[in-house]
Simulated assay, not measured.
Amino acid sequence: MFDHPVTGAAVAGFLLGGSLIIAIGAQNAFILRQGLARNHVFVVCLIAAICDALLIAAGVAGLGTIVARSPVLISFVTIGGAIFLFGYAFLAFRRALHPHALEAANRSAGSLWAAVTTVLALTFLNPHVYLDTVLLIGGISGGYEGTARLAFGLGACVASFVWFFGLGYGARLLAPVFVKPLAWRILDIIIGLIMAGLAVGLLLRFANS
């Protein structure tokens, strides 16, 4: 089933988007804390996912189109994207060697406005979000054409919704597990393997093109 170009592109987008977004950061920590406190969980998850989707769409529609028109840019983005993914994989494996439990202590319930402004700030004031969504995902989408490119972008967007809502509402179930450094070690190893696999796939597709 995954041999179909559109399906394969959607799966590739989902895996890439999921791998990038899972990386432990301030945004994920905030949503995890909101989930543990059951404080405006739906709103913060929805805002974080929609923001990601908008940035991915901008990358796929804008940068992806520009890149698609230039074989030189496609080559540059593909090779650069592979190097970037290998770098992410290296960092994930390095974190796995020295894992740390993510502190997500409960806080007193705050206002809806405070929750919304915080998640927006953690999203748009984070330079990595533009690198991941607009540049990396948008640039790599330039290697796909037509419906396949749209499927790639949708796959990445779905990964954002699945992750944020899964993290927010699954926080209470995950908390006892991810208090242990071993859980983060396993997660980082999985992230590293996915990143490295995607990088190899990019290079193989580039070599066969």
Rank of each mutant, 00 (worst) to 15 (best):
G110S: 12
G143Q: 06
V162R: 08
D188H: 10
G110W: 00
L135K: 11
V179Y: 01
V162C: 09
V116C: 07
F84C: 11
V179S: 13
G87E: 01
E145T: 12
D132Y: 06
A156E: 09
L46V: 01
A175E: 14
A68T: 02
G64S: 10
L154W: 07
P5G: 09
L63V: 08
Y130R: 10
S75W: 01
F152R: 11
S75P: 00
I140F: 08
L174A: 15
L54G: 07
G25Y: 04
I31F: 07
G155A: 08
R94K: 15
V67A: 11
L16T: 05
G62H: 08
L15R: 12
S75M: 07
A159K: 04
A37L: 03
S160G: 09
P71S: 14
T133I: 01
I24Q: 13
V200G: 01
S160E: 00
S75G: 15
S70E: 06
I194R: 08
T133A: 13
G139K: 03
S75T: 13
G197K: 07
V67M: 05
L203S: 04
G153H: 09
T7W: 12
A156Y: 02
G17D: 03
L91P: 00
E103I: 07
T117M: 11
S70P: 00
F152K: 10
L36N: 12
A89L: 08
F164K: 14
V11H: 10
S108P: 00
A92H: 08
A121W: 10
A199N: 08
V43Y: 05
I191C: 12
A199H: 03
G18N: 07
A183E: 03
A89T: 03
F2N: 11
H40I: 03
A26M: 11
S141A: 14
A196D: 02
K180Q: 14
Q34G: 03
V77F: 13
C157V: 12
R38K: 14
I50V: 15
A12K: 09
I194L: 14
G110I: 09
P5R: 11
I191H: 05
A57F: 03
L63T: 03
A148W: 03
H128K: 13
F84R: 06
L150W: 12
A101V: 00
A109S: 12
L54C: 12
R69I: 00
F84L: 14
V162P: 00
L174D: 01
S19N: 13
F206W: 15
I66D: 05
R172T: 11
P127G: 10
G59A: 12
V134Q: 05
L102K: 10
L203D: 04
A26P: 00
R107G: 04
I79G: 04
L32V: 01
H98S: 13
A96I: 04
T65L: 11
S111Y: 02
A199T: 05
C45N: 08
L167V: 10
N39Q: 14
I21S: 11
L20Y: 04
A148P: 02
S160P: 00
G166H: 06
A12M: 05
L63C: 08
G166F: 02
G166Q: 04
I186A: 14
N126P: 00
A115Q: 02
